[in-house]
Design a protein around this nucleic acid. Structure first.
Lengths: 237, 237
DNA sequence: CGGTCAATTGAGGGCATTCAAGGTGCGTGG
DNA sequence: CCACGCACCTTGAATGCCCTCAATTGACCG
């Protein structure tokens, strides 16, 4: 660690020192003084798996866990329109046109601030506004990527793309060449609602990937990506 | 017009006075001084229908016309991931993860600024950053809306939703109860690439809507929405 | 052990696609 | 003016991918 990093580290609020949110989340762009102000208004809490996150005006860093964003259509139809993996940032300035629900897929730890604090800090810290914009544009890129998948990919390409996406978010630092394994934070029904398929089709594609040696499945939820190369060939882009 | 509006009007650069971009675009949030600065760096130009817009770092207000954003997949597959209708704002801070092409669907008028100008003004004008963020979040809402349509709507629901979307963007001030008509800025192939369908399916759904009295079609491209109520019933949300 | 829930697997059907043919509008050149 | 080519669109028939319906298995738990 360099001397300047040491000096900066000294000013950082205690609870923020080891916080993941300073890596992938919002706090990384803040100066020590701003971080202290935000930390003073922050509160940590947990949300159990399956619980819906209320859409009050608060903003949160997602410290651990996975969250799904869903949009509902008549006839019981549902579409998952996005995920949040730790360490990510949640919260919306301005109101959305459409109702989108957020639900914890796993147990979730949040570090939350009142919306008014963020709104005020935007005016004082251009870097914060920049970061919020960058974050929104990343989400936009993701959404458009999945638009292409939903509209133009086959069922098996969708499933392969999905596995690669989850793998990349659960372990962003993973070495791309080697194999890896993880627990899926989603049920087959969730996967189906994300990919625009049925649970049966998802299950069949999992079985096919397994019998082809691309993946291994243990206990229904634990996935080992045996051949990343094979998955990338099948993902359709 | 009130006295304060009169006073503001007096300071507005001449070329901006009648500009649509101050309504739906970016310039509406700028103060007269900032507007003058931006106007000084701006240049107007036209792009003919069918031409691809180069992705240099410039930002533009779309004064007239329609633009499509596309993402390509192997095998000649294509997905349209968004549209820009006048008066809208185009341009990306930061670089996108994926290549997205922009192409003029109609003849297009642009008012462009160098990216560096916007980047600098963000730091001085928090309202500008706010507006860019608001704009990005609106695009995100739209993209997620279409994710739901692509994943969970039937072909006929997709087509009905599409017509309502185009109608709303071509004439945002239209009275919702009455009928309206317009020229589609897209070919059937474009519509298919947007809705994740084939041109044949799109054509069949148009024919069905016509024979059911929901719309009228003249010259293949000119659409009259005879029954907005019927379309809304069919749009699947 | 029986109950519940999630996932898998099989059989059959339907919606959108693929393949194919014909129609419409429009500019170009005879 | 009409013939021609071309791009775009429409319509029909048949195929296929994914869905629906149904039964089964496996894991977890009281």
């Amino acid at each position: 660690m360099t001397a300047t990093q040491d000096a900066q580290q000294a000013d950082i609020p205690t609870i923020c020192r080891a916080c993941e949110a300073r890596r992938g989340g919002l706090c990384g762009v803040l100066k020590a003084r701003q971080l202290a102000e935000l930390a003073g208004a922050s509160s940590r809490h947990e949300v159990p798996a399956g619980m819906e996150l209320s859409d009050d005006g608060t903003y949160s860093n997602l410290l651990s866990g996975v969250i799904k964003l869903t949009r509902n259509l008549p006839g019981g139809r549902q579409q998952i329109v996005g995920f949040h993996f730790a360490p990510d940032f949640l919260g919306r300035p301005f109101e959305a046109k459409r109702p989108i629900k957020a639900e914890a897929l796993t147990n979730v730890e949040l570090c939350s601030f009142p919306g008014t604090t963020i709104d005020r800090m935007i005016n004082e810290a251009p870097e914060l506004a920049r970061q919020l914009l960058r974050h929104a544009l990343n989400e936009l890129d993701d959404a458009r990527d999945w638009m292409a998948a939903l509209g133009r990919k086959t069922a098996s390409e969708k499933v392969a793309s999905f596995l690669l996406m989850v793998a990349g978010n659960i372990d962003p630092a993973h070495h791309p060449a080697s194999s890896m394994s993880f627990d899926l934070p989603l049920t087959r029904a969730d996967i189906a609602d994300f990919l625009g398929l049925t649970i049966e089709t998802v299950s069949r594609e999992f079985s096919r990937l397994r019998s082809d040696g691309a993946i291994q499945i243990a206990n229904k939820r634990h996935i080992s990506l045996a051949s990343l190369a094979q998955l990338k060939e099948r993902c359709g882009d």
